[in-house]
């Protein structure tokens, strides 16, 4: 079992926690991944409701945290999209807070990191891009397609530019998804790896324990780094979504 626990990839395995029947061809079983998605939603919702309290005129310390989070995302949306960003602010905030809380919950020992699942990050990326496409067509109709044909180029160039722009647009959801997924997976693999070193070395006796000091220090440092990355990746995902949405609002660059 000790060997099992030190396997750095084992932590990403999706396992059933509560078996549920299959409905319409979808297995509704609550897996560890699903469990932590549910936890993310519950912790975020009730956490923020508790933090805001009764909305005091002079904010309490906890209320300030909620207001700082709100202000942080609101400023980001406003600085990129201006007042037009108001409509998508709830989505961007939800996206940011979901990824942030999922990342941070994943930092708890023994927990599961939802954002290290490619299918989850891919779904989030595709949702963002779907929103971009929908917003683009609603706001600009077929003018949205100008996104692929920047104005002011010699006509011949469009033969080259349009396919490039189109491919770069198609790659956006994947770059969003893979950036988050790879960051979370790499960080947690690294943590597990160094944690595994510590465990295996310290089982070798006194010399092993002495040798385990270095990997322990590295694991500690990586933990701190991971906390920064947890925030940073949520921020990057939200910022890029805002930028893509702004492109959809103003396709003619």
């Amino acid at each position: 079992m000790a060997l099992l626990e030190t396997d750095p990839m084992h932590q990403f395995v999706v396992q059933p926690v509560l078996e549920l029947p299959t409905l319409f061809g979808i297995d509704l079983t609550i897996t560890n991944s699903a469990l932590f998605m549910i936890l993310t939603t519950l912790v975020t919702s009730f956490g923020l409701i508790l933090l805001t309290g009764r909305g005091a005129m002079v904010p309490t310390r906890s209320q300030s945290i909620a207001e700082i989070l709100y202000g942080f995302v609101a400023d980001m949306v406003r600085s990129i999209m201006g007042e037009e960003g108001r409509a998508v602010f709830p989505y961007v905030f939800t996206l940011f807070i979901f990824i942030l809380v999922a990342n941070l919950l994943g930092m708890l020992p023994g927990s599961y990191t939802v954002t290290s699942q490619l299918v989850v990050t891919l779904a989030l990326g595709l949702t963002s891009i779907a929103l971009v496409v929908i917003t683009g067509f609603i706001k600009n109709g077929f003018g949205f397609l100008k996104l692929f044909a920047p104005a002011g180029l010699p006509p011949v160039m469009y033969i080259l530019i349009v396919p490039i722009e189109f491919i770069s647009f198609l790659s956006r959801p994947f770059s969003l998804a893979i950036r988050l997924f790879a960051n979370m997976m790499a960080g947690h693999t690294l943590l597990k790896l160094f944690g595994g070193f510590v465990l295996s070395l310290s089982s070798l006796g006194a010399i092993g324990i002495a040798g385990a000091v270095l990997p322990m220090a590295v694991a500690t440092a990586v933990t701190a780094l991971e906390l920064v990355i947890a925030f940073l990746q949520a921020y990057v995902f939200a910022v890029l979504t805002c930028i893509y949405l702004n492109d959809a609002l103003h396709p003619s660059h």
Partner: peptide
């Protein structure tokens, strides 16, 4: 299964927010 639960939880979270 993951997609199903992600859709459920993310939609719920979105509505709550």
């Amino acid at each position: 299964g993951q997609l199903f639960w992600l859709a459920v939880t993310f939609t719920l979270l979105y509505l709550m927010m």
